[in-house]
């Protein structure tokens, strides 16, 4: 649905540290910043694709090129087969976009007037528009506040209104740049539920998403692209990304009567890499069992062996490498 091929974008930025006289009369020294080095990825129809990357990695720049606000230096982008430069109007008609949410709505208008204004720009009008506005009010949880001036909304409400404006024309493709920024935990969860249950399950909307919240990306994405310095450095399902970094699943057990147990009986189990135990002051032991990379500790077997050797199991906790671990490794300089 979205095809991005060899996208490259440089920005010329004037330096702010030149002397005043030089800035006035001389040539202002500028430097070229390469925002996108070479970005290539595809988002399939109905897919949820997240771009993750550090600040300044190039996520927003990529989205701006796709939504036709920014022209790339080279490379091609098509949305639903339409080229973003040559058929920009058709592309814009298919897209629902939210970038810099709360700044993109009119604060001097009410929520309803904003929705009506943007709806009409997308050719939604009359009764259909009025009904859609009510629906959107429900979806983004602003029904009660639709007739208030946006000025009086909280930041999260403005953000929600911006998302509402992006949805008003039932776009087939959504580009959402950090849409849950500023949303409280409950609203963010509602929004994610709405995306999964309504937009994806019912309407098969294609979504390109950026976020700095790893749990969101992990929960919702079919695939994730990790952007670093203007390149996609890793791509795949969340579990594939997590599997890309060395780091293994670890089980920690607090056990009594375990001081004299021969740990090699545990090491002998399949997919166990290392076992380590230490005695605690209380007389019990803390046993740490690491799995071979890419596998899981066979918890049931471990517990069975320990109890059959006379140990009494107290606390047991399992920790796995997270998307955050992978993200930090993949975007490290």
């Amino acid at each position: 649905m979205i095809e991005v091929k060899n996208l490259r974008k440089e920005f010329k930025q004037n330096r702010a540290d030149a002397g005043l006289l030089r800035m006035l009369f001389g040539r202002v020294p500028s430097e070229t910043v390469t925002a996108l080095e070479d970005v290539t990825f595809n988002v399939e129809e109905g897919e949820f694709y997240s771009l993750l990357g550090r600040n300044g990695a190039g996520k927003t720049t990529t989205i701006k090129v796709i939504c036709t606000l920014l022209l790339a230096d080279s490379g091609t982008v098509t949305v639903g087969g339409h080229d973003v430069e040559r058929e920009s109007s058709s592309v814009r008609a298919m897209l629902g976009v939210s970038i810099r949410g709360e700044r993109s709505v009119y604060w001097r208008l009410s929520g309803r007037q904003n929705l009506a204004y943007f709806g009409r720009l997308y050719d939604v009008k009359g009764a259909a528009l009025r009904n859609r506005i009510e629906e959107i009010g429900e979806i983004v949880g602003l029904s009660e506040r639709l007739d208030d001036y946006v000025e009086r909304y909280s930041m999260g409400m403005k953000q929600r209104l911006a998302i509402g404006c992006a949805l008003i024309h039932r776009p087939r493709v959504l580009l959402l740049d950090e849409p849950t920024i500023g949303l409280d935990a409950a609203s963010a969860r509602d929004f994610r539920d709405f995306i999964s249950h309504e937009l994806r399950a019912r309407e098969n909307v294609t979504i390109l998403y950026t976020t700095h919240y790893m749990h969101e990306a992990e929960e919702m994405s079919d695939r994730i692209g990790i952007v670093n310095h203007g390149r996609i450095v890793a791509e795949g399902t969340p579990s594939k990304i997590i599997g890309m970094v060395p780091g293994n699943s670890v089980v920690t057990i607090d056990a009594k009567n375990a001081v004299n147990i021969d740990l090699s009986t545990l090491s002998a189990l399949d997919s166990i890499e290392r076992v380590h135990a230490e005695s605690l002051d209380s007389g019990s032991s803390k046993i740490r069992i690491e799995a071979v990379v890419g596998t899981e500790v066979p918890v049931a077997d471990v517990v069975h062996r320990l109890t059959s050797l006379g140990a009494e199991i107290g606390n047991l906790s399992v920790s796995r490498p997270t998307l955050e671990d992978a993200f930090l490794r993949l975007t490290a300089d």
Partner: peptide, 14 residues
């Protein structure tokens, strides 16, 4: 200044 011009330019109109 408000940032709304960008939002307008996202719409499929000239």
């Amino acid at each position: 200044q408000t940032g709304t011009i960008e939002r307008n330019f996202l719409a499929p109109v000239s």
